[in-house]
Design a protein around this nucleic acid. Sequence first.
DNA 1: AGGCAGGTGGCCA
DNA 2: TGGCCACCTGCC
Length: 293
Amino acid sequence: MSAWTAWTPLSLSHPFTEQTLAETLNGGQAFRWNYHETESCWQGIWDQYVARIRFSDNNTLLASYPKSSPYTPNALANYLRLDFAWTTAVDSLPWRSDAHLDTALKAFPGLRILKQPFPEAVLCFLCSATKQIPQIKVMCERMAETLGNELLPGIHALPTWDQLAAASETDLRSLGLGFRAKNIKKTADILAAQPELLSQIESAPYETGKTQLVSLPGIGEKIADCALLFGAAKLEAFPVDTWIIKVLEKRYQLTGWSPAQLSQFGRVHYGPLAGFAQQFIFSYERAEKTSNS
DNA sequence: AGGCAGGTGGCCA
DNA sequence: TGGCCACCTGCC
């Protein structure tokens, strides 16, 4: 008898394509989804949950859950933000006056921003400094295996910040975190001393939360914006990374602009859902590079 | 073999 | 503010 439930349909008012689902789950927002060739599905881990997702033949999205974890369907619906008005959000972006944005929106129909657990988003993006997605995933996987709770045989949650605080910097370095280990350890110690801090930041307005986040060791503007966008549903957060700098130079002729100026441009040009728009142009550029290499 | 990768913080003009 | 550099590690 299988430990997983039967495949059940997810109610999607704003459908994915197969490529967009892959981009959403494994395109640099989240680092804990893997495609299982044998099961032909995506398997992901967040909080204390595990779920599987795949398309059916008639192009509806199906999910399956461990039978031992009855609340997972609700948690997945929240994680994927099934209730959010994504179609309206896309329409509100300035695609009518921005041909490049229009192209990117059409290239990834259904792309959405996940609502990851905020503490996990902070941790994952602390690992992201000068690393590519596959390597960030390896770091997260090693932290989970070594320090996190085992949810199913061989499947581990990311460590909580308390669990991280209990580890030494040397322990963390041994997981291949490199210079990020020091930042993670120092941040873990601060968060252990202020147990309410992350939930306060998550529920604060964007600007307030960002100011508090960048005061933590190893968290600058970019990582703060990623954590707020992908872990706190602050869709106005506009991460300025090396990719976006290149995109804005190449597609908008903003050569020589500083990151602060580009951040300002993003907020003004794309509007209150600037981070949502950012994800489309980021994905578009990444896909183009992948297809060229 | 050496440079670079979804950055940050420190130091100096 | 703006530029430069060290910082771990692994992959091209």
